[in-house]
């Protein structure tokens, strides 16, 4: 037997494609897929949400946000009622039975939860200086209900996260990356949704109080606290400064009168201080 050693320079076991080229293809395909998925899911969620009857939403809210029902806040309730009384007669909001809770939390914020639950953080009440300002925030949240934004948000964010987990598995790095991305982009309402709710809130405020005083106070305070705009590439929240500008141009366009806002009522002021032990921790 003769043994003839041969050396070949060609490597048949390794593909010739450049890894960066492959990365470009893969990432491109992934983004395309995600985009298609996002659009399809977004459109279906928006269409479906418009079709969900309010009764079904109330039922959903009862089952998933049950912990909120116990402690309604009387003082906030009276303020909300005043706004509700001034809604136009054909407003779909009349089908909700709204509840409003005060939750002890330093953050100055309010939430709209499915089923007509509004949660106001005590930080907001403490910082508020006028009735009009508080009414504007409540009216803004009512605007989210009127446009069904809270359901749309739930639909999209959940859908995308669930889809990412299904595709990549719960533990994989990529699904964590994706869910972080979705949480960042989908955890807030979109710019459009916020400004629609602002518009709705402004109209309701003017209907209830007869003037637009105090409409921008809340955002003005947020701006002062937050300072300059900190850009975060993954965020899509509208900046409060933009919202103030938009509200002011709305007030000018419609010729709403602006008068001095009424100071905060005593019933609320007394409530934010001693009574708070009663508030139970709420899952956020």
């Amino acid at each position: 037997m003769k043994f003839t050693p041969k050396h070949i320079d060609e490597n048949v076991n390794v593909s010739k494609t450049h890894p960066l080229g492959e990365l470009a293809w893969l990432v491109g395909g992934m983004l395309l897929l995600a985009l298609v998925f996002y659009l399809v899911l977004g459109v279906t969620a928006d269409l479906a949400v418009a079709k969900i009857p309010i009764k079904a939403e109330v039922w959903l809210g009862e089952h998933f946000v049950a912990s909120f029902e116990a402690n309604e806040d009387e003082a906030l309730r009276r303020r909300l009622q005043r706004l509700l009384d001034n809604l136009p007669a054909d407003s779909p909001l009349h089908q909700y039975t709204f509840t409003v809770q005060l939750v002890k939390n330093e953050e100055a914020n309010a939430l709209a939860l499915p089923g007509g639950h509004i949660v106001v953080f005590s930080g907001l009440v403490e910082q508020a200086e006028s009735e009009n300002e508080l009414a504007m925030v409540l009216a803004h949240e009512l605007g989210h209900f009127a446009h069904r934004d809270h359901l749309k948000r739930l639909g999209r964010g959940l859908g995308l996260t669930v889809a990412a987990i299904l595709v990549f598995g719960e533990d994989s790095a990529i699904s964590r990356l994706m869910s972080n991305l979705f949480l960042a982009t989908e955890s807030g309402y979109s710019r459009q949704q916020e400004s629609d709710a602002d518009r709705f809130g402004l109209e309701l405020l003017v209907n209830s109080f007869g003037h637009a005083g105090g409409a921008t106070d809340f955002f003005a305070r947020v701006v002062k606290k937050a300072g300059r705009r900190v850009p975060y590439l993954l965020a899509s929240h509208p900046h409060p400064e933009d919202r103030i500008e938009e509200l002011q141009s709305l007030i000018r366009e419609n010729g709403y009168p602006v008068e001095k806002s009424a100071p905060l009522g005593d019933d609320l002021l007394s409530e934010t201080e001693p009574e708070q032990e009663a508030e139970t921790a709420v899952d956020q």
Partner: peptide, 17 residues
Amino acid sequence: LLAILRNFFGGRVKAYE
């Protein structure tokens, strides 16, 4: 990362070759 991405689309995992 390339291999993880490739895992999704299937096909030749060139990164491991």
